[in-house]
Design a protein around this nucleic acid. Structure first.
Lengths: 252, 252
DNA sequence: CCATCTTTGTGCACGCGTTCACAAAGACAT
DNA sequence: ATGTCTTTGTGAACGCGTGCACAAAGATGG
């Protein structure tokens, strides 16, 4: 769902399905909240509700990690927090670089959720000489000329790209050449990467467009059921779109 | 994938699979780039390469929209841009509100990708009285007391939540009560919404954790193949994790 | 008008993910 | 101990998504 180009053959890494991996952080967050409230154990039903998933799915997910529950009781919160953290690799330190310190890059640098669990902003990099030397989120921005050195000196394997789309691909290539093997891409571009490099993308514009699609559909259905037999002429699934010609309802 | 809690029964809205809908924006972006270069037609193979997907998948995706291609030639770029835009509902104007004008909210407000296609930032809302009245991205921030009025006056149906996690749920509820039916959530929280409301979430922390998982796996495999027969003792899939045992805490 | 060549549109098979439903396992009381 | 009750762990069925492979369709040239 996130890799740029690679046909990931459903990488069931060590037997853990990708879909399960994507949910583990969700469980971890819910468990951490319980842990802070000193709740000792939790049932699959309760935890599933907190994470917003089906309880059977949650149990199956956990079964891939091992048998960490106790029948008749539930799961030990602390123990599960540890197991999931370890499984996700959060027991170690992950230095991360952010490339492209514009509005978004700066916002991410300031984002608290970073340091919280295993991740540490090792460096901020920008191509603008004006930016170099400035402090953002208490970290000095460095010039992209030194990108390779920064990566190797800090042992960085995860890079975050928040550059304009035009330069994202070349930044990506430099990151990969320097040793980065995981990339989180915020630029609205499809990144091509060699095998062995993971890319996940976050794209505001795509998310909005998906929402708009469903929104339009809702409006269309609503109009359809309200209109009743009025639009009996252009019926069936042949109609080209819910909005027809006149938006009829909604925004001014 | 994105909905907070609702079991969306694979909402194949009007016969278009959800997975296809999620790729349409990708195609649209690639097509727009071609259009700007005045490319008249494009084959499924070329477009698929540009969008980073399989060409068969692309053709099947388009087949859900209709038969818009010409065999032996390909697809008419302009026509396809229009068809996909219409399908996604981008031919109409979507006023959007952003709630929570911190670093991230401000960054999104400044983000150019917003206005580009159908979306318009109708209002910025924040709970801090200090923020109200200030200009962000050329828009005056309004206080959250007026949230309901802002939503209804502007006919807003899409809301973006960039508040701290603690207040995200209640902001969400106010948005929904005021008439918002699509929510893009950047707060690290599971949102509960009534049926009929779509929620998509963007979560930096989760994305990083997924990357960390794969990163750890890569490192493990590497070490494994390098170490060779060294770790012959605790082998097989029975091993509890890369960092051995020391469970630290066991369930009481 | 026919042959050839390109490219679409899709039938089909396969695999992943989800969910149901239930047997097995353990806690707890008597 | 034994029975009851709760909750896990999982076998099995089903549906969605993906990709192969090919026939149909149309363009193009002779």
């Amino acid at each position: 769902m996130a890799t740029g180009r690679t046909h990931r053959p459903a990488t069931r890494s060590r037997g853990i399905p990708e879909a399960t991996v994507a949910r583990l952080p969700l469980y971890l967050r819910a468990l951490t909240a319980l842990s802070e409230r000193s709740v000792p154990t939790v049932s699959s039903e309760e935890l599933a509700a907190a994470a917003g998933v089906n309880s059977a799915k949650l149990r199956k997910d956990f079964s891939y990690l091992g048998s960490y529950g106790t029948r008749g009781v539930g799961y030990d919160v602390e123990y599960l927090v540890y197991q999931i953290s370890r499984e996700l690799g959060l027991t170690q330190d992950w230095p991360v670089v952010i490339v492209g310190i514009g509005n978004l890059g700066a916002a991410l640098a300031n984002y608290g959720g970073f340091a919280s669990r295993g991740f540490r902003v090792a460096a901020l990099i920008d191509a603008d000489p004006e930016m170099a030397g400035k402090q953002v989120a208490g970290i000095t921005v460095q010039h992209s000329d030194d990108l390779e050195k920064i990566i190797s000196d800090n042992g960085v394997s995860i890079g975050v790209i928040t550059t304009p789309p035009g330069v994202a691909q070349q930044v990506c290539e430099r990151l990969v050449a320097a040793g980065v093997t995981s990339i989180l891409n915020f630029a609205p571009t499809v990144l091509s990467v060699p095998d062995g490099v993971d890319v996940r993308k976050v794209d505001l514009s795509i998310e909005l467009q998906i929402l708009a699609f469903h929104e339009q559909r809702k409006a269309g259905e609503e109009a359809e059921s309200q209109a009743g037999a009025v639009a009996a002429a252009h019926q069936d699934d042949d109609e080209k779109g819910p909005d027809g010609d006149v938006p009829a309802v909604m925004p001014a």
